[in-house]
Structure formats: C-alpha cells, structure tokens
C-alpha cells in the first residue's frame, strides 16, 4: 500500500484549535500543499492575522509572524521590499482584511505589491464571539446584529474582491470556496496560481475563500456547507474576478 494523501510537510503535526467543521483547517492545508508542491517552504514567510487564525503560526511549518489587526499587508510589504526573492503571503479574515485593514489591503493592491493574500470570508468575527463582519449578509443574525443585519443601520456585505479588481495594481483575484471536495480542489488551484504569480514577479494576487463557520452561523458542520451554497454564493459569486493573464489574451 502506498500513502497518497496525508499531512503536507508544510503543516505541523499540531492539532488545530478550530471548532468542529471550521473551514480554516482546510484552507491551511491547501496553502501548505501548494507550498510543498512549489518547493518554496524554506523561502516562504507567512503573516498571520488577528482573529481565529491568529494561531496559524502553530500549524505552518515555515517562518510565520503575526501582525496587528488589519496590518498584514503592510507587514508583508515591509518584508517583501527588503527580501524580494522570498515568498511572502498574508492570511486574513474578513474583519482583518475588509474592515480594520481596508486601507492596508487597498493600498498594497494599488501599489501592486508582489505578495499573495489568502482572504478567508466566513461572514462573521469568530474569535470574538460571532459579531457582525463587513461581509455579514443582509438579515444575517450575529451577536451585534441580533435582529439580522439591517443595511439602513449597518450597511451592506462588502465585495472587497470586486473592488480590488478595479485597481490597476492588482493582477489576479479569484473567489473560491471549500464547501465540497470539487470546490476545495478548485480552491487549491487558485491558491497555487496566486503563489505562482508571486514567484513569477507578476504582482498582487488575492484569493477569497468562502469558508464555513458553523458555530457562529448556528448550524451544524454539514448544514454549513449548504449555507455557503444557498446564502453566501448568491451574494459572493465564485469565479475569477480579475486575471491580467486572461485579459491580455482577451479571455476575460
């Protein structure tokens, strides 16, 4: 017998602290597999966010730092400008990337920083107890929108990836999800491209991953998969939002 799927080298053996059915563990693995496959483990520097994934440095088997809430793109910029031959990526949640860190995200993209951002969108603040995120859906109940998000009071779910696609500096932006094996395999392909772009010096690449947070959504892990399908995807449609490679060929 031959082992064909197992923990990638870029993932430590440590048990993760995420809740049962949380999507973070899947996304961590996809990144680790991509890093293994590209042979870049020894030259990768990861930037972990504030939020549930703050402990990501415990799970990745390469150099990782942790930035202040919302600041990973600025930290990554400092790293990449000093060491342009290293592979630098940030891992950020929706609050980190699209609320407190909006300015850092937008300007890193606009400068065309040659970094990779993996943006995990689960529509809530998980770590702090399920509060409203910038990406919380209309009418979605959270601990700070107990009656559901009312756009008159709390605005709309922010489509930050589409907004970033409008910037001249961004090169590749795709939205994926990990709610089925098929989608997970597609997500990995996107993450791989986002890293390859950096290696090929193409510039700013971001992959938004719609990810499960069953606890904050008040559903079980299996229902959370459907929740993404039925509630999130209609608001945050999957697919390539921007790809300068394809635009250049006239395919997008």
């Amino acid at each position: 017998m031959k082992k064909i799927f197992s923990r990638p080298e870029s993932l430590t053996a440590k048990r993760n602290i995420y809740c049962s059915g949380c999507g973070h563990g899947i996304v961590h693995r996809l990144i680790a597999e991509v890093i293994d496959e590209l042979g870049i483990r020894e030259k990768t520097i990861g930037v972990a966010p504030v939020g549930c994934a703050v402990f990501a440095y415990d799970y990745w088997n390469f150099d990782v730092t942790e930035a202040a809430h919302g600041r990973p793109p600025a930290v990554a910029t400092g790293i990449k400008r000093v060491l342009p031959d290293r592979v630098v990526f940030t891992y950020q949640g929706d609050g980190d990337l699209a609320a407190i860190g909006t300015a850092e995200t937008v300007h890193a993209a606009n400068r065309g920083e040659n970094i990779t951002i993996i943006f995990v969108n689960n529509g809530v603040y998980g770590m702090t107890g399920g509060q409203m995120a910038p990406t919380t859906l209309i009418a979605q109940k959270t601990t700070t929108t107990p009656l559901g998000r009312d756009p008159k009071i709390a605005g709309y779910p922010i489509k930050i990836s589409e907004a970033l696609g409008q910037l001249e500096g961004s090169v590749y932006i795709e939205r994926v999800t990990v709610n089925s094996p098929k989608n997970t395999i597609k997500a990995k392909r996107a993450i791989k491209k986002a890293f390859q772009n950096q290696i090929q010096n193409k510039g700013f690449s971001l992959v938004e991953v719609l990810s499960m947070c069953p606890i904050a959504w008040g559903v079980n892990p299996v229902e959370a998969l459907k929740w993404i399908e039925q509630k999130m995807i209609p608001v945050f449609p999957l697919g390539v939002i921007k790809d300068k490679d394809l635009t250049a060929k006239g395919n997008l």
Binding site: A67, R81, V82, R111
Partner: peptide
C-alpha cells in the same frame, strides 16, 4: 534602499515591523 510613502502612519510603522522582522535596519 527601500523607500515607501505609506498610505498612513499605521501602515508605515507596520512596514517598519515587516522590514525589521527580516533583519533590515528600518
């Protein structure tokens, strides 16, 4: 050497954080 006009002082100090983290005098 590296010069960036950052988008804010917050970003600037966090770029210093990143540069220092990889060994540069920032």
């Amino acid at each position: 050497k590296v010069f960036i006009q950052a988008e804010s002082e917050l970003a600037a100090i966090n770029m210093v954080f990143g540069a220092s983290l990889v060994g540069a005098r920032a």
